[in-house]
């Protein structure tokens, strides 16, 4: 079977992983791949841990990624890297947004935010870390963080030479095209 690539986007409900996945999937379909993307709706979105998954290749069957299958994982929130770590290959590339969203048990003091995540993972595989939130803020809109991360993901996947400006412009809110294209480029340059 022709090789299938598995991309895992993990984060917290409301961070915009679905939009980033949608842009990426559209581009992959246009590039001629069979593509499947899976997302989670409903209760989990209310501040819970969320994942969207993209699989592409010549022929894709399963819409979801099993343990040990992801080639690239991009973590919109730092701690989520740990939650999904078993889904990635031992040789996977990991992109981490150095951004913490404390979860409810942390806020009420029942649990602690784990320390040393980046150090531990960097010792095991190729990890790129940067502050997507700061980049988005500098560009004038913290909400563009997801597109910054998409830029970094595209770089990590090694598929920079597609017409990303077009795909971004087609999928983001009207009036925010230019900002998001800038955010995307900044993400590519960040890793």
């Amino acid at each position: 079977m022709a090789e299938i690539k598995n991309i895992l986007l993990v984060g917290v409900g409301g961070q915009g992983t679905i939009l980033a996945s949608k842009i990426l999937s559209t581009a992959l379909v246009d590039a001629g791949y069979d593509v499947k993307m899976s997302e989670v709706h409903g209760m989990a979105q209310r501040g819970g841990s969320v994942t969207t998954q993209i699989r592409y290749g010549e022929k894709v069957f399963s819409p979801i990624i099993g343990k040990g299958e992801a080639d690239v994982m991009v973590c919109f929130e730092k701690m989520e890297a740990l939650r999904w770590i078993e889904y990635v290959k031992p040789t996977a590339k990991i992109v981490i947004n150095d951004f913490e969203i404390p979860s409810a048990p942390i806020l009420v003091g029942a649990e602690e935010y784990p320390q040393g995540i980046i150090e531990e993972l960097s010792a095991k595989t190729e990890v790129s870390v940067f502050k997507a939130a700061d980049i988005a803020k500098e560009l004038g809109n913290p909400k563009a963080m997801n597109i910054v991360l998409l830029g970094a993901l595209v770089k990590a996947m090694g598929i920079e030479d597609m017409d990303w400006d077009k795909y971004i412009a087609e999928n983001v809110k009207k009036g925010f095209e230019e900002l998001n294209i800038k955010a995307f480029r900044a993400g590519m340059d960040a890793i």
Partner: peptide, 20 residues
Amino acid sequence: LENPTLKAEKKAAGRPPTLC
């Protein structure tokens, strides 16, 4: 059979859904 996977010593804190 099981795929080889990356493992981490550290564990993520729980992140259940919450009221906004």
